[in-house]
Structure formats: structure tokens, C-alpha cells
């Protein structure tokens, strides 16, 4: 299981822009945020989606996505905040106690970014990665501006570049902290 699965929900919500944020140490918490400008949810629905027996799916009656992340955050001394406005979008904030042994691994973020941009080439993605005072951002809109009509995210050269960009910059941050 991988907390990055949350990002996939935004694609299903018909979002045009999906923003990911990773903060390795925000007042003792490892924080992962996903913001999308999709269809959003009513307050009633926001209440219900933590329940594993609630799903919008029609094929079967169990939906595990949000309920699992909710459980994972609580188990590792954190919590999951969901803010949503119908028609405007949704913000999911997963807080994990930084040093909790039960904190699930983030997963392979660089490979996930590659799969996200190549799999949904018409959507825009941003990533903000922070660790203390260091950090970096990635924004597909910026790449589109720089590359013009060359910005085809299904192109191997481009998705490989995205993965390398994210991987290299995370490494630089980690080297700085582990020095």
C-alpha cells in the first residue's frame, strides 16, 4: 500500500490541476497533501468517505482508498484532514508522526510522478517537496511554457526527464540532511 494512491482520486474527479506536497518535517509530522480542482464533495460525502463501506463505485460495495489512508495516519500517530467544496475541488492532508515506527513508506515518488504525467498527459501536476529550509518544486505548466509544442508527456524523453528531475532533487535534499 502506498499513500501516493490518493493522487489517483483527483484524476477520477475530473481535475485539471493536481498539486502534491510532501513536507518531511512539519512540526514533527511527515505531511503529504493532495489538492485537486475536480468536482469536489458535499460535506455529507466528506463525512462518509472514511467509511470503507462507502464508495461511489457501482461494481461492488467496498471502497478502500480513503478509509485505508485514514487508518494508516491514525495508526502512526497522525490524522487525515479532508477539505472539499463541491465544484471547486478537494484537499487531502495526511499527517504522520515523523518518527513513528508504523509510518508507512511514501513509496517511489519519482516513479509515481513519471506514471502520473505519462498516464494523464493532458492534466497539470505540481509537486512541492520540503525538508526544513530546503526543498524544490516541479510544475508541468512551467515545462509546457518552456517547451511549447514539444511538451508531450507521453514522450519517453520527457517522462524520463521528469523522473530524473524529482529523483535527483530529492537525493540532493537527503544528502544535505544526512551529510
Amino acid at each position: 500500500m502506498n499513500i501516493l494512491d490518493l493522487a489517483q482520486n483527483g484524476i477520477k474527479a475530473g481535475a485539471k490541476l493536481i498539486g502534491l506536497e510532501v513536507n518531511e518535517d512539519e512540526a514533527g509530522y511527515f505531511v503529504f497533501r493532495v489538492r485537486d480542482d475536480g468536482c469536489g464533495m458535499t460535506p455529507d460525502m466528506v463525512q462518509k468517505i472514511r467509511d470503507p463501506f462507502f464508495t461511489t463505485r457501482t461494481t461492488r460495495k467496498v471502497g478502500m482508498g480513503v478509509s485505508l489512508v485514514d487508518m494508516l495516519t491514525t495508526q502512526s500517530g497522525g490524522h487525515l484532514d479532508i477539505t472539499s467544496v463541491p465544484g471547486r475541488g478537494t484537499l487531502m492532508e495526511a499527517y504522520f508522526a515523523k518518527d513513528n515506527i508504523d509510518r508507512p513508506p511514501l513509496g517511489d515518488l519519482p516513479a509515481t510522478m513519471k506514471v502520473l504525467v505519462a498516464g494523464a498527459p493532458d492534466l497539470d501536476f505540481t509537486l512541492s517537496y520540503k525538508h526544513g529550509a530546503t526543498g524544490f518544486t516541479f510544475d508541468t505548466r512551467e515545462l509546457r511554457k518552456e517547451l511549447g509544442n514539444l511538451a508531450d508527456f507521453t514522450s519517453p524523453a520527457l517522462y524520463e526527464w521528469v523522473e530524473d528531475f524529482v529523483r535527483t532533487n530529492i537525493q540532493v535534499i537527503h544528502e544535505k540532511w544526512e551529510g
Binding site: 524544490f136 528531475f165 532533487n169
Partner: peptide, 15 residues
Amino acid sequence: MKTVADLKALREKLQ
């Protein structure tokens, strides 16, 4: 740190 400023090589590959 890598930045999006240096995209010359990528641009050539994409072309």
C-alpha cells in the same frame, strides 16, 4: 539542484 532553466538537451531530444 536541478532546475527547469536548463532544458537545452531535453529540447533537442524531444525534437
